[in-house]
């Protein structure tokens, strides 16, 4: 029982670490790092569930009966692309924010905005 879900638990810990970085840190770049860790951990979760004990990589070959599940692999390939797209756009925004505000700390930006109003 314990071993059955051990993998998933670690993955949950990883996800939550990433999630924590996103919400608790004020630095914009670090938030994006956190976001990508959060997403990567979700990928690990999907890939974990695709594993079949004793299976091999899903490339058809003579003499092999047991393959791991290819569908989550496909989904995650797509999701990785989505992840890098988000990261790139987020970084581009961070760069522009640095130019506009001279800072990439959340609180500093908030402070400047309040002054503006």
């Amino acid at each position: 029982m314990l071993m059955d879900h051990y993998n998933y638990w670690i993955v949950v810990v990883l996800m939550m670490t990433g999630f924590y970085i996103v919400i608790a840190h004020g630095n914009l770049i670090k938030k994006i790092v956190g976001l990508s860790i959060f997403q990567t951990s979700v990928f690990i979760f999907y890939i974990s569930m695709a594993k079949v004990e004793g299976g091999t990589a899903p490339i058809l070959e003579e003499g092999i009966r047991q393959y791991s599940n290819p569908l989550p692999h496909v989904l995650i390939l797509t999701a990785i692309v989505v992840g890098i797209a988000t990261t790139a756009l987020g970084l581009a925004l961070a760069v522009r924010i640095k130019e506009a505000y001279g800072s990439i700390e959340e609180e500093e930006i908030q402070r400047q905005d309040n002054l503006d109003c």
Binding site: A50, G55, H73, I80, T87, A88, L91
Partner: peptide
């Protein structure tokens, strides 16, 4: 290790490569 070779390939190129570079 989880038999997802295609994904591993992509993740290595993206996670360790491109996104690190961009950051």
């Amino acid at each position: 290790a989880m038999d997802a070779v295609d994904v591993a390939f992509t993740e290595a190129a993206v996670g360790a490569g491109i996104s690190t570079l961009l950051m």
